[in-house]
């Protein structure tokens, strides 16, 4: 299988030949790759050199945490890559932003309400978790729509709290 993997706009052509060999940008390496103590920790032996990393599936592609640095990566196979370049890609700017709870917690304050106009950086909700109050801010200008929570509600991680249109 051939893959095109992109990290910070740098492209790598990686071909997985079999369990033991891969080709990276034309150079062949012996590879031994295993998950240790269960996912997402992985151990890689690449031509005998040993690397340990976390590999998480993120919202957009993969996140590799390697020796204290985080590398966001997208991996597409060759066919998909061809299709994408043929039809053009780029995510469509969606009209609505859904504010999701980044962690479980308690809604302690909502300084905005439905129909309220907000600017980028305005505080939308204050969520308390682990004894800290966290201000959740608007990523862009817009109008508050569909407030789904009230002050005093306990919310779950990734629960949608409100939308900005």
């Amino acid at each position: 299988m051939k893959y095109i993997t992109t990290l910070n706009e740098q492209e790598f052509n990686i071909e997985v030949l079999d369990e033991e060999y891969i080709v990276v940008d034309g150079v062949t390496y012996t590879v031994n790759f295993e998950s240790v103590s269960g996912e997402p920790v992985f151990s890689l032996l690449l031509d005998g050199k040993s690397y340990d990393a976390y590999v998480y599936e993120g919202d957009e592609g993969w996140e590799v945490l390697l020796q204290g640095s985080l590398y966001p990566a997208t991996v597409v196979d060759e066919r998909e890559h061809r299709l994408r370049s043929a039809f053009g890609s780029g995510p469509v700017q969606s009209g609505e932003f859904y504010l999701k709870a980044p962690m479980p917690g308690l809604v302690v304050d909502i300084p905005v309400s439905d129909g309220h106009e907000v600017k980028e950086g305005d505080v939308l909700i204050i969520l308390e978790s682990m004894k800290m109050q966290n201000e959740l801010k608007s990523p862009r200008d817009g109008v508050i729509a569909r407030m789904r929570v009230n002050v005093g509600d306990n919310v779950e991680r990734r629960q949608t709290l409100l939308s900005v249109v």
């Binding site: 299988m1 893959y3 993997t5 990290l7 910070n8 740098q10 790598f12 990686i14 997985v16 891969i22 990276v24 590879v31 790759f33 992985f42 890689l44 690449l46 690397y51 990393a53 590999v55 592609g61 993969w62 590799v64 390697l66 020796q67 640095s69 590398y71 990566a73 991996v75």
Partner: peptide, 14 residues
């Protein structure tokens, strides 16, 4: 080590 990160992401995806 971007190339190592790229290889690891690719192998997990694979």
């Amino acid at each position: 080590y971007p190339h190592i990160a790229a290889i690891m992401a690719t192998l997990v995806a694979h």
